[in-house]
Design a protein around this nucleic acid. Structure first.
Lengths: 243, 243
DNA sequence: CATTAACTGTGTCCTGCGGACACTGTGTAC
DNA sequence: GTACACAGTGTCCGCAGGACACAGTTAATG
């Protein structure tokens, strides 16, 4: 029923993200802003990962009791929602991305990569049922704009956006999760290389692939991005030439 | 120091997956096999998701005490590793996939999609630091084989495999996580559609896209897969024609 | 100016989690 | 028969998220 904090709205967790603050008139001043709480949580996650994030930890970070956090946030889910929307920062506006759609897509990928590298927990925090924040939606909006000149159908354009984010998530996550240069996917396996080496007879194709030293981690997603954009291009071409 | 259970090997969690059982000589019979425990856990996850998986729950399912499970498995991580390798089932052998590499890739994607649809928690359980099981590696091996005739470099071939799994994970996860037909990515947002509709002025590109009804969930990954394979093809062609 | 109501932060308590550890019971090898 | 290796149980601990009642603080209202 309150008009301000929003931590007591039962309709949907995370709506603080979309509501204007609306300062309260009576009562003591808050010791912190929602943003300060969010960034404290981001700091914790940056250091100890999402697994190391707890109400206690964040509360201690900002010098409050655990329960005081619930004045800012309805629960841990909402805290995560808030910290995600803080960590992604402002999405690029229409004036920022210039050049061909391909150049824009590459620049965009670099931007996402920057943010997700600064906050390695981010690509994994954003999965599952959750309310998106305005900045987060802004990134999707920006990605959608890029593919507009391509002439894809609406649902295909959306799929392209999904795939772009998915690709970055996949590659950045495997890159940040340890020192291993690539390691494949349904795993992220910590020692897939060793396992394959120990059972070379069972996995000949992988053994062959593993012989190659591989590229540096920093440029891991570039080849894949090129493939992806090529694929979009050929899909658009196929669409123009009457399927 | 034991020669059998493997739950006390300090070197790496999950090595039960790669060790031959080796029946013990003395002591009472085990009430269950490791496989029975694994499948019970799979059943729990199928019903209540990964979040609903706890030692208690699994123990109750098989009629044991929580602590008795630790005779089969070193900890929850190892339990997850075991249940993942059980749930993925046997990967397709070289004789199963036939036709062009493209047909093989499509068939392979269909197979992965089948398994991951049966166990919706699977695509998300497999991320992060974890020891892969033999079957899991087998799937990667199978995927690697598919791209062999394409003439890609070793690291590119590996990237292709990673992207294939990543694409399926992304699309299947967003498809299974609710009724929403697509919803974009850094989110999986539960009501992104509503949010965009409520702030149409802020997200014009997304509003335009949202006007389209979209495809049925069942065929969500097909367009993306086509793009991906097209992209690989053009990368291979670029490679042959001297970059 | 006194009162009242709204608000912030604290302390206590509960449930469920993963897991350590000491224990009882059981079966085989010596 | 006895000793030992093993299976399963019960108790305990720390930590998690969160409900709830409370004390302190501030502004609107009489």
């Amino acid at each position: 029923m309150s008009s301000t904090s929003g931590a007591d709205d039962p309709s949907a967790a995370g709506h603080i993200l979309w509501r204007v603050p609306g300062e309260p008139t009576r009562g003591p001043r808050r010791a912190l802003t929602l943003d300060e709480v969010a960034w404290a949580a981001v700091g914790v996650a940056d250091r100890d990962g999402l697994a190391g994030l707890s109400m206690q930890r964040v509360a201690a970070e900002v010098g409050l009791t655990k329960m005081a956090l619930y004045r800012y946030v309805a629960g841990k889910d909402e805290l995560e929602a808030v910290m995600i929307d803080a960590a992604v920062e402002e999405p690029p506006g229409p004036e920022t991305l210039t050049g061909t759609w391909r150049e824009q897509a590459e620049e965009f990928a670099r931007m996402v990569s920057d943010v997700w590298t600064r906050h390695p927990w981010l690509p994994w925090a954003a999965v599952g049922e959750r309310v998106m924040g305005p900045r987060e939606v802004g990134w999707v909006e920006a990605a959608t704009r890029i593919f507009e000149p391509l002439g894809l159908a609406a649902d295909e354009r959306m799929d392209a956006v999904t795939m772009l984010f998915g690709h970055l998530r996949t590659t950045l996550a495997t890159a940040s999760a340890g020192t291993r240069p690539w390691t494949a996917d349904p795993a992220g396996g910590s020692t897939m290389r060793d396992l394959v080496a120990a059972h070379a007879d069972r996995y000949p194709a992988l053994t062959a692939v593993m012989a190659d030293p591989g590229r540096p981690v920093s440029s891991r997603w570039e080849f894949g991005l090129g493939c992806l954009l090529d694929g979009f291009e050929s899909a658009a071409r196929r669409r123009e030439t009457g399927r």
